[in-house]
Simulated assay, not measured.
Amino acid sequence: MSNTLPLAMLIELAQNKTDEASRRLGQLQRAQVGAAEKLEMLIRYRQEYCDQLQSQMQDGVSSSRWRNFQHFIGTLDGAIEQQRAVAGQADSRLARGRSDWQQNKRRLSSFDTLAERARQQQVQLLNKREQRGNDEHAARQFQLRMRAAAE
């Protein structure tokens, strides 16, 4: 029984770490989704702006408007590249968080397996003791009957 107390403590600590890893994983997933959505929004906005200019070019566009467009698209492309980097970092953090969660989950599972084995050993030990007690009782009863029959 003394071995189960430290094991119970290890299981509790492992459960706490797994729970914390689960919370972090949720946060990382939300951050990754947010970064990906923002990137998609920027790409969509760029495409819409290019489509808008394309339709305006059919009627003719002044050189200043063309320069403004090129400048704005350059700025937008820079923002898209920055957001791609942010999204890539979010993907990497999510992968590390997923790996951390899996590691904690495996550790908890290992401790649970050890605890189950300890419980099974304890049950087997109790069953053996009970069987031994029953066998001893049956042997005494048999001896008493034999003595009574001999008298």
Rank of each mutant, 00 (worst) to 15 (best):
N127T: 09
L108A: 01
R44E: 14
A31H: 06
R147S: 11
E116Y: 08
Q102A: 09
R30F: 08
I43W: 02
M57W: 07
Q15S: 15
L144V: 03
E130G: 05
A35L: 02
S99H: 14
D19M: 03
G34K: 07
N127G: 00
D77V: 02
Q131S: 10
Y49T: 06
N3P: 11
V33P: 03
V33S: 09
R30G: 04
Q124M: 09
W101F: 15
K105Y: 15
L28H: 03
E20S: 13
R23Q: 10
F142S: 15
L25A: 07
H137T: 13
A35P: 02
Q131V: 03
M9W: 15
F142A: 11
S63Q: 12
A14F: 02
F111V: 02
G26F: 03
A138G: 01
Q121Y: 12
A150Y: 09
R23H: 13
A85T: 09
L10M: 12
D19S: 02
N68P: 02
A21W: 03
Q32T: 01
Q83W: 02
N68S: 10
Y49F: 15
R96A: 11
T75A: 07
E40V: 04
R147D: 10
G97D: 05
S99N: 08
E12F: 14
Q27P: 02
G60E: 01
R145T: 04
Q143N: 12
E37M: 05
